[in-house]
């Protein structure tokens, strides 16, 4: 087989090149230390001794995602929004009418019915503990989006309607998540307008010239300011964004063609 010969030569070539590079020391020291910027982030991710520099979240990745580089994440959320809007634009004019379908066998359906509440519980816990342990809004949203695949494949597309999730409702919940993100972004400014204390957009904890800070402890339970609320809002936005996508993908092709009025091609 020619295919396997090419594959073997690629793997052997990569190994030989790696051996030669190591023998010659061509890449210099590799994998022995991180750069200074990484140490700066790691030192200040949870450091009550420097309150004006820290993000007060023990999870370094979450504190970078929603505090140190928060504006990056905000605009990446906008890119995500635009991609789903574009998908909706292709399907404009198609009503999400309930479509009869068979789905899979009874055993698969019962097992799936047990799995779905567990999946929801896991996703919520990933979102709610994102500031403390590995996890967060994006991870939880991707975990919950698996439910929409299960619904579409195991129960057929009509199950969305039976569960009371219409396309319009999914879009509303998705937009609610995005508005919640915007609310957290503008909350410090609103606080500033009411009380006259200086505060900045997306501010999480105290700064040198601003005493504003989100609550770090609620009833003795440690939360870490904006990352917690951003994670929950992003969870809502990402998971229902994917619900929208999989609802559109699971529509039957003949129904879509009929409603789009496109009968060319076939």
């Amino acid at each position: 087989m020619r295919k396997y010969l090419v594959l073997a030569s690629i793997v052997l070539g990569v190994s030989a090149l790696a051996y030669a590079t190591t023998y010659l020391g061509a890449l210099g020291p590799i994998g022995s230390d991180t750069r200074q910027l990484a140490k700066l982030f790691l030192m200040h991710t949870y450091n009550p001794e420097f309150p004006e520099l820290t993000a007060m979240s023990p999870e370094a990745v979450t504190s970078i995602v929603w505090d140190f580089r928060g504006v990056d994440t905000l605009y990446e959320t906008v890119v995500f929004y635009m991609a789903i809007v574009a998908a909706l634009a292709i399907y404009r004019g198609v009503g999400y009418s309930a479509i009869r379908g068979a789905g899979l066998s009874v055993i698969v359906r019962v097992v799936t019915r047990i799995l779905i509440p567990m999946n929801i519980a896991i996703a919520v816990s990933i979102a709610a503990h994102g500031y403390l342990a590995p996890g967060g809004g994006f991870q939880a949203g991707a975990a919950l989006a698996v439910i929409s695949v299960l619904l579409a494949v195991v129960f057929s597309a009509s199950s969305f309607g039976k569960l009371g999730i219409s396309l319009a409702r999914a879009v509303i919940l998705w937009t609610a998540g995005l508005l919640a993100i915007a609310a957290v972004v503008f909350a410090p400014v609103a606080f500033s307008a009411v009380t006259g204390v200086r505060a900045f957009l997306m501010q999480n904890y105290v700064k040198l010239d601003s005493p504003f800070a989100f609550a770090i402890h609620i009833y003795g339970q440690q939360v870490s300011g904006t990352p917690t609320w951003f994670n929950l809002a992003e969870f809502l936005a990402v998971s229902f964004g994917f619900f929208v996508i999989f609802m559109l993908l699971s529509l039957r092709e003949d129904v879509v063609r009929e409603q789009l009025g496109e009968s060319r091609g076939h």
Partner: peptide, 18 residues
Amino acid sequence: VDPLPQALVLTAIVIGLA
């Protein structure tokens, strides 16, 4: 390890998915 690439890749995966 360096958390910055992990944070950037985290969002890059979701954007790439969309």
